[in-house]
Amino acid sequence: MSLSATDLSAIWLTLQLASLTTVLLLLIGTPVAWWLARTRSRMKGLIGAVVALPLVLPPTVIGFYLLVTMGPHGPVGQLTMAMGLGTLPFTFAGLVVGSVIYSLPFVVQPLQNAFEAIGDRPLEVAATLRAGPWDRFFTVALPLARPGFVTASILGFAHTVGEFGVVLMLGGNIPGRTRTVSVQIFDPVEAMEYAEAHWLAGGMLLFSFVVLLALYSSRRMRPGLG
């Protein structure tokens, strides 16, 4: 193996970022997806479109807007400074915020599909058995939507690992703090040192393939929701 110490620190940082982002996304994404799946509100189209925006926007656009809004002159930046937190760009916390926004649709959409696939019937049956709304959600909807949660977690995690543009715009390439794997690969490629890039780039390719293989194989074995 020819992975350097900085490679390893980039890998460790990326795993931390992707794990934390996935956990936060499941916490934020579940109620959003539940609402999108059940609501008849006219706002559904609007919220759905906002959630899907990161799918189509170039990451550099997201990164640029985040850089400006989280900077000292932006509204979010002024808020965090008033709270004594300083500003978020160039910090790990800033990357987490960026990643949550960037990977949002990859978690919300599978969850929404899973909740929609359950339909009204099981929940109505549960209601006739006197299960309250929270009970229905936790003991009926959540278990039935499990494959959706598996898909959402894997996609959210993998998409954050592969994130590049947002990290590049927000991170400032600080070793051990904001230099993730994709940025670590980018440097030698830009400097035309292809041999150095191969180890990490190859590893990244392998990782992505294995993740997707696991995802699609698990789908085949458990057909149904998700």
């Binding site: 400006v68 900077g71 930046g77």
Partner: peptide
């Protein structure tokens, strides 16, 4: 950009 946006 980092400087112009005030982040650095």
């Amino acid at each position: 950009q980092f400087v112009a946006s005030g982040n650095a």
